[in-house]
Amino acid sequence: MSKPIAPSRLLAGACLALIAATAAGAALAEPNITGRWARYPRPASQTPPDPKLAPPRAGEPELKEPYAAAFKELRRKQRESDEKGEPLANGGAECIPGGVPSMMGAIYPIEILQTPKQITVIAEAGSEVRRIYLDEKSPPLEDIPPGYYGASYGAWKGNELTVETLGVREDVRYRDIPHSSKLKIVEHFKLVSPDVLHDTVTFEDPDYLAKPYTVTFAYQRLPDYKMLEYVCENNRSYVDANGVTRMKLDPESKK
């Protein structure tokens, strides 16, 4: 003879079932972003991008003084040097990695490898690699050796991945924008359509930025693409004494 089930146990059972369903739902809600991705829209594309999928225009950051004035002057010098045909050097001219978040600009495709505990991003340009650890606490800033990629820790919440990066070296700069060692980079990854991913990147820096600065990188899937190697071994660009990028000629070109 079966005993009647107490209402409280019924309720508990229903709660457990609900929790399990929610957990399964949450797990299902995590999109699969593993794969190869190219920047969207393609730089030389002849077809206009879908405005619903294209990233919003970023503009320039609002820096605090005296950094704002120095940055404005740098931009002026860059324009002036370009007009003269003597472009000022940046790290790229010397094959120095872009780091975080520059590598996410994906001048060439990127590959994302998603596992439950880690997301790995490999950029074809320069063979740059970054690792994002999931569901772990980031070490404090003072324990992170400053570097090109810093320390990235993230978590999925529903269909959105949030990643915080600390410890990007002060001379590792996105588009030459200056920052302090306290820079925090917050990224939100989200599929805005089945095959278009947005990485919304916000720079927070209490010392340098008057307000947080946001740029969005958009990518489209490259289903059949195989990543190519990129070893920066034959760099003919060099920086002269005035900080200008020049091209080293073939030794016989001077004849």
């Binding site: 829209p41 990233p55 050097a89 520059s102 600009g105 660009s237």
Partner: peptide, 11 residues
């Protein structure tokens, strides 16, 4: 119109 691509090898 879009975020400038960082990391172009050189100007």
């Amino acid at each position: 119109a879009t975020a400038a691509p960082a990391g172009a090898h050189h100007s």
